[in-house]
Design a protein around this nucleic acid. Structure first.
Lengths: 242, 242
DNA sequence: AGTTGTCTACTTGTCCGACAATATTGCCAC
DNA sequence: GTGGCAATATTGTCGGACAAGTAGACAACT
């Protein structure tokens, strides 16, 4: 039995830390990251800082063009649509296969219970278990590349959430019900039904997110509490066309 | 009308050149690439060579572990299965959508004609137009991320082909017929039929490839020329769990 | 024999300092 | 203000340096 240990290099550590800072909002979308700044912040050589930036750029956590300083990626309405559509494409067919086998992954079932429990507890921090519901479905077909692709999309969803700073109106009640219905349809072997339900489920989430980001579909997007304090909301639209 | 120009950096150029060498077989799977060697070959600083290697590693063209020299990736039977299954997952749902719209992308139709023509001309170099048939379908749904995911898979298929050095028994005749049938089913709006046809089509290709690589289905794997010299074939499975 | 220790050669990981090319900014003249 | 220019900031690349890790060979030990 082979056992694995991890030995993290300097670049690894910086990369992880920066990625973490991006997803939890400490580094808001659009913030610039210069090589010098990072190298001094972490007390490492500029080359190491540079390597970390390049990695995050290849992961699309940061964006950079020639001779310009890297910035935290900003995801607009078009990106959200694209992300969710790709999720739908990937997950639909996986669902059909699972329905064909009438196989319901336990991890998805437990994840959905978790959401229900959080909701009963009054919490709305359901992004994580919600994602686990979906990745549970995907991972159950046991394809490393399929999982990798989906997890990459899931990560981008997380970035969107970080961009929204918590405000987000997905009702846990509806989510739990739809998840449960999907699992039920899988158990019944109803591939078309499961796929249709998923489409509806993710499409709704997509439109909600697009709306929150100020997308076109619902032209009067309501800004519930406060326009993000200190965050230039609109300027990122320009970056959409690079 | 915006026009784009590309200004390639040293690292860009090296990365591209190396990637090209890998796909056309000049750098066979498993060959080691040390930073020093590359830096002297291209007459650049080691840091630049290193950056190129890191990029290709993140693209999975090369593989590397801590303190060990990078090698050209070797794709085994398990990888091929995984690649093709992921292709099937992605492409099936796209096909269903196209069937729903009864929309047949022209690029796919012309690509299939190209294969037919090459075949009539006695050529068996059909990998490229074959891929264009499929990417034509994918790209027509106009999702950048879906396309990116599929193109990444297509690239891995190319790597497999490079590994096989040309020998490959896919009959163009059957391919053309199946492609045509798929387009026909899309036109008829038969989503299930199109998806099923695609599954059959890609599954056959998958098994053929797996067989050529010495997969388990035909347990007696023949290593025509030489067994991969000094290359532990299985070890990459470990990297799945990082 | 088989295990363990040591040596050497090679390679990677990280640092430093340097400089040209390019981008950004601020200022000045108009 | 607007255009243009100079000063500044930042990236892209270089070369050299050294510690740390890997691999193979060979000797020593049990």
């Amino acid at each position: 039995m082979v056992r694995h240990i991890v030995v993290t290099s300097v670049v690894d550590a910086i990369t992880e830390d920066l990625r973490e800072q991006v997803v939890n909002g400490e580094l808001p979308p659009g913030s610039p990251l210069t090589e010098l700044e990072i190298s001094t912040r972490y007390e490492v050589a500029r080359s190491s800082a540079r390597a970390a930036i390049e990695r995050l750029t290849s992961e699309k956590v940061l964006v950079r063009r020639n001779h310009k300083t890297a910035r935290v990626v900003e995801l607009g309405p078009d990106d959200v649509r694209d992300i969710y559509n790709t999720r739908i494409y990937l997950e639909s067919e996986v669902l059909r296969r699972l329905a064909g086998l009438r196989r319901v992954p336990v991890s998805s079932r437990t994840a959905n219970s978790e959401i229900a429990e959080l909701w009963r507890g009054g919490s709305y921090q359901i992004v994580d278990p919600d994602m686990r519901f979906h990745t549970g479905l995907i991972d159950s077909v046991d394809s490393a590349r399929t999982s990798a692709a989906y997890h990459s999309l899931a990560f981008e969803v997380k970035l969107c959430m970080a961009q929204l700073q918590g405000r987000q109106a997905l009702s846990p009640q509806i989510i739990v019900a739809e998840h449960a219905r999907i699992l039920e349809l899988i158990e019944l072997g109803d591939a078309d039904g499961a796929a249709a339900m998923l489409d509806e489920h993710l499409s709704r989430a997509r439109e909600l997110l697009v709306g929150s980001l100020g997308g076109t579909p619902g032209p009067e997007a309501e800004w519930p509490s406060s326009a993000a304090p200190g965050a230039p909301i609109r300027e990122d639209a320009a970056t959409a066309l690079r």
